Simulated assay, not measured.
Amino acid sequence: MKIFGVVGWKNSGKTGLMERLVADLTARGLKVSTIKHAHHAFDVDQPGRDSHRHRVAGAGQVLLASRMRWALMTELGDAPEPPLSELLGKLDPCDLVLIEGYKRDGHAKLEAHRAETGQPLIAPDDPTVRAVASDAPLSLDRPVFDLDDTRGIADFILAELGL
């Protein structure tokens, strides 16, 4: 299982790029999974639903299953957030895991960048950022792609990983 990350500051285009990359890569016949890091509290459940009621009642884990999909929710309580390596181990085997976020981890990454955010680039100070996808021209010591060049970015990721 190969991994490659997409990082960037808020509103840099990470999620849209991830969505386009998953569509492109799966259309090529690759089995792709994703991991998304959130810096805020989130809830995949909805108040009032049975599974939510189970969690609120104190269940440490709730597995919700149907004919179409299943989801396992685990309450961490006071436990620390699991490291990326542990979360990767929970995924079924696949060709590629695209990781959105986890910008401080050591895996290879591509930085999404939008000039309008006013945020500095991560790439110059991070050798794990192998390329940048931007909506503005940049001069860097690594490849720079147009943020909308999904096919070119996908080709780059596949070449980097030997897929």
Rank of each mutant, 00 (worst) to 15 (best):
L30W: 07
I157L: 12
H113W: 14
K31V: 12
Q119W: 03
V144H: 07
P137N: 08
L158E: 08
A71E: 02
L88I: 14
K109E: 09
D126M: 11
L138I: 02
L17P: 08
T34V: 04
H37L: 08
T128V: 07
D43T: 04
V44A: 07
V62E: 00
D148G: 11
E160H: 01
A41W: 10
L98Q: 13
D126L: 03
D105F: 02
E100L: 04
K10N: 02
L17M: 11
L17V: 08
M68T: 14
A123Y: 10
F156Q: 11
T128G: 01
A115V: 02
R20Q: 12
A71W: 10
V62Y: 00
H54R: 01
L110S: 15
K36M: 05
G101D: 12
R130D: 02
V22K: 07
R20D: 12
R53L: 15
L140W: 05
L76G: 06
L147C: 09
P80D: 10
D24A: 14
D148I: 09
A154T: 11
D125W: 08
V62W: 03
L121N: 11
D135L: 01
T117Q: 12
H113A: 07
E111M: 12
G106K: 02
D43E: 08
E19K: 08
L138M: 08
A79N: 11
I3C: 00
M68F: 08
V6N: 08
R20Y: 00
K103A: 13
W9M: 00
R151Y: 00
D148L: 12
K109T: 15
A71I: 11
K90M: 11
G162K: 14
L87N: 14
I122N: 01
L121K: 15
I122P: 03
S139V: 14
G60H: 14
R151Q: 15
R20F: 00
D78F: 14
K31S: 12
V144L: 11
V97H: 10
D92N: 15
A159D: 15
Q61S: 03
Y102A: 03
A59Q: 09
L17N: 02
R130A: 14
E86Y: 14
L17W: 09
M68H: 15
G106E: 07
K14M: 00
M1D: 00
D146F: 04
G106L: 09
A23S: 13
K2S: 15
